[in-house]
Design a protein around this nucleic acid. Sequence first.
DNA 1: CCGAATCCTCATTGATACTG
DNA 2: CAGTATCAATGAGGATTCGG
Lengths: 138, 138
Amino acid sequence: MRSPQTVQAATHNAGGDVDGETDPKVEALVNDLIGRVADKWTMIVLEVLNDHEELRFTQLARNVPGISQKMLTQTLRQMERDGMLTRTVHAVVPPRVDYRLTDLGKSLGAAFCSVWIWAEQNLDRVETARENFDGAVR
Amino acid sequence: MRSPQTVQAATHNAGGDVDGETDPKVEALVNDLIGRVADKWTMIVLEVLNDHEELRFTQLARNVPGISQKMLTQTLRQMERDGMLTRTVHAVVPPRVDYRLTDLGKSLGAAFCSVWIWAEQNLDRVETARENFDGAVR
DNA sequence: CCGAATCCTCATTGATACTG
DNA sequence: CAGTATCAATGAGGATTCGG
């Protein structure tokens, strides 16, 4: 699934990507990135790490209720690969691994902050909309 | 999957949910909502409709390159159910259906705006991080 | 033109067990 | 404690077809 195509010409459009139209190539790349970032677990891990500065594996697991260790590991690896967080292994026994957001991760966290706030503020509105919809369609 | 529990006490904590800790109940609901909103297609459709005011089905399909009609229909239905957009059927032939963001949808679009900007601005950084990671782990 | 319905595939995820 | 490995099942998602 990981296409190692060289990413040529990521930034050579005429400058019309302010808000309306976007260069198709950049748009595709952005959508691709969005696709990876817009993952449920990624967002939640990001949120948790954004709040807690530094956490160990099990602490992280406790703070992300529904997740399995497999998904947690996988999500953490992806985020590490994308430069969102650092993974520090302490050579002690019992083993200890600390996860901490990088500046890049923090910046994404800041960007998502408004989404979290939106979610908190509009929970009931969405729920009402759903009830209306389900009631009407029936 | 949809627990119809009454949403009691959505806002009765001591006021400590500014950034650090969040009420577990609210947190669970927010995470749930995030889980639905943090969908690749949802985000992209939201972005497209945020730019184009009002679009018809096929126009929408053209503006969301990789999507299948099935996923588009499905995504649109979910978003309609969540109150993100309105679906207007014009009784003409050939049929014509217009999709348009509601105020709620627009507000989510505004919240996600910073994420799109982040993605545009940090594409290369993520790509570099990936190359480093893949090179180092090998 | 819009979209529902069917079928089919393979990728994601969870459970479980095992290691350093 | 912090993972890795394996297996099985669910379901997301694509291709196609039909209907209004």
